[in-house]
């Protein structure tokens, strides 16, 4: 393929990136630098101020940012751990069972994320099956509300990220020749040693990619915290939404969104760098 042809083929994606990503980002940055209009319109045109960023990074802002980053890291770690276990299990299945399992993993993606979140909320409500099951088993005396806390939000976000993590990890595992594990066993390695010394190191590129995906999705988490968490435990994305729609403070919301974008990109890059430093991804 000639160079000109490949540029031509890449141009629709280029236009999309430039028009739908870079353009709005530039607009976002501009909006974040206007003075708030205090409910009379979106912002005061023609003004320039850094106050919105000062507000987004004050003591409360930084705490919110810290919580958001920690939440993102927790989503990534949980999704990678669960996803890796699931991917290893699916890989061990026969071809037909494997196809069914992959379909089952992807099935939640057919439903809207909102439906999934409301479903989870019902599942975890005081009248839901989990609560009733716990009562029946005698674990708790009274029905309990299991949502409205950070763990429910985490579960919700992991639910959204998990299918991607499993797919990425399955593809990576597919590149590991079963003969390598067989060879390790033949050389005297136990099942665990073969996993630890062969399968795991060869999975690293997939684990890094899945972790990066989980981190970026988790840092930007909105639906899980919004619908399943305690209103006190909120992420930056929810705060941005509040500023924009509850307080009509668009410049402040834009500043929050800029901080969020930088955080997600920064954490993703940092993670990739750390993974490369530690010798992973070979």
């Amino acid at each position: 393929m000639s160079r000109a042809t490949s540029y031509l083929l890449a141009s629709p994606a280029g236009v999309l990136v430039a028009g739908l990503l870079l353009g709005p980002v530039v607009l976002l940055v501009r909006v974040s630098l206007y003075e708030p209009a205090g409910g009379r319109g979106f912002f005061v045109p023609g003004t320039w101020t850094g106050d919105n960023f000062a507000a987004a990074t004050d003591h409360a802002g930084l705490r919110l940012l810290g919580f958001t980053a920690a939440f993102g890291a927790a989503v990534a770690a949980t999704a990678v751990a669960l996803g890796y276990a699931l991917a290893l299990f699916i890989r061990s299945l026969g071809p037909t069972a494997r196809r069914v399992a992959v379909a089952a993993v992807l099935l939640p993606k057919l439903a809207s994320a909102l439906v999934v979140m409301f479903g989870l909320r019902q599942l975890l409500s005081a009248a839901g099956p989990v609560s009733r099951g716990l009562v029946a088993l005698g674990v708790v005396a009274e029905p309990v509300t299991l949502s409205r806390n950070v763990f429910a939000a985490l579960a919700g976000e992991v639910y959204l990220v998990l299918p991607y993590a499993v797919l990425v990890l399955l593809i990576q595992l597919g590149r590991i020749d079963p003969a390598w594990e067989a060879a390790a066993r033949g050389l005297g390695a136990s099942r665990w040693q073969a996993f630890r010394r062969v399968t795991l190191p060869l999975s690293v590129p997939g684990l890094v990619l899945a972790g990066q995906l989980g981190l970026m999705c988790g840092v930007g988490a909105f639906l899980g915290p919004m619908l399943l968490a305690n209103p006190a435990d909120q992420t930056l994305a929810v705060e941005v939404h509040r500023q924009a729609f509850d307080r009509q403070n668009w410049p402040r919301a834009a500043a929050g969104a800029v901080v969020l974008t930088l955080t997600a990109a920064g954490l993703g890059a940092l993670f990739a760098l750390a993974a490369r430093r530690s010798g992973g991804g070979r």
Binding site: A182, A183, G186, L187, G188, S190, R191, V198, R282
Partner: peptide
């Protein structure tokens, strides 16, 4: 017995050398 307890060295057709 599983392979690791047979003390039998095997050379596979593909060699199955650990790539990492």
């Amino acid at each position: 017995l599983p392979p690791e307890r047979r003390n039998a060295g095997m050379v596979f057709q593909s060699y199955a050398l650990f790539p990492h």
